[in-house]
Simulated scan of single mutants.
Amino acid sequence: MLSVVVPCYNEEEMIKIFYNAVENVEFPLEKEYIFIDDGSYDNTLRELRSLSLKTNNVKYLSFSRNFGKEAALFAGLKESIGDYVVVMDVDLQDPPELLTDMYSYIVKEEYDCVGTRRTTRNGEPAIRTFFAKSFYKVMSMISETEIVDGARDYRMMSRQMVNSILEVTEYNRFSKGIFSWVGYKTKYLEYENLERAAGNTTWSFWSLLKYSVDGIIAFSDAPLSIASFVGLFSFIISILLSIIIAIRTIVFDNPTPGWTSIMVIVLALGGLQLLCLGILGKYVSKTFMETKRRPLYFIKEKNDKTTINE
Rank of each mutant, 00 (worst) to 15 (best):
K176Y: 07
R196P: 03
I15K: 01
N66Q: 09
F35L: 02
S285M: 13
E310C: 11
T306S: 10
L240Q: 12
L269E: 12
I142S: 02
E167G: 07
S164D: 14
G278K: 12
S220Q: 05
K187C: 03
N193L: 03
P96F: 04
V5I: 08
A227M: 03
F219W: 07
A227W: 03
F27Y: 08
E30P: 01
T249M: 08
M141T: 12
P28T: 08
K108Y: 10
L166K: 07
V107C: 01
S204L: 06
F252T: 10
V85R: 02
K16Y: 11
A71C: 02
E26Y: 11
V4T: 07
K69S: 04
Q160N: 15
E124F: 10
S220R: 04
R159F: 03
Q273S: 15
F135H: 12
L2A: 05
P223L: 03
F18W: 11
F229V: 09
L280S: 13
G150L: 02
G281V: 03
I147Y: 03
G76R: 01
F63A: 00
Y297S: 03
F233E: 13
L194S: 08
Y33N: 04
K16E: 14
N303H: 03
E70Y: 05
D89W: 06
Y211W: 14
R46F: 13
V4Q: 03
S52V: 02
W203P: 02
V251M: 04
T100R: 15
P295C: 04
P295T: 10
I243T: 06
T249V: 07
G231V: 01
L166P: 01
L99S: 00
V266A: 04
A222L: 06
D83E: 13
V266L: 06
L51E: 09
E70Q: 11
T249K: 11
K187G: 01
T306E: 11
L272R: 09
D112H: 14
E195S: 12
R293T: 11
S80V: 06
S261W: 15
R65G: 07
F229M: 10
P95K: 01
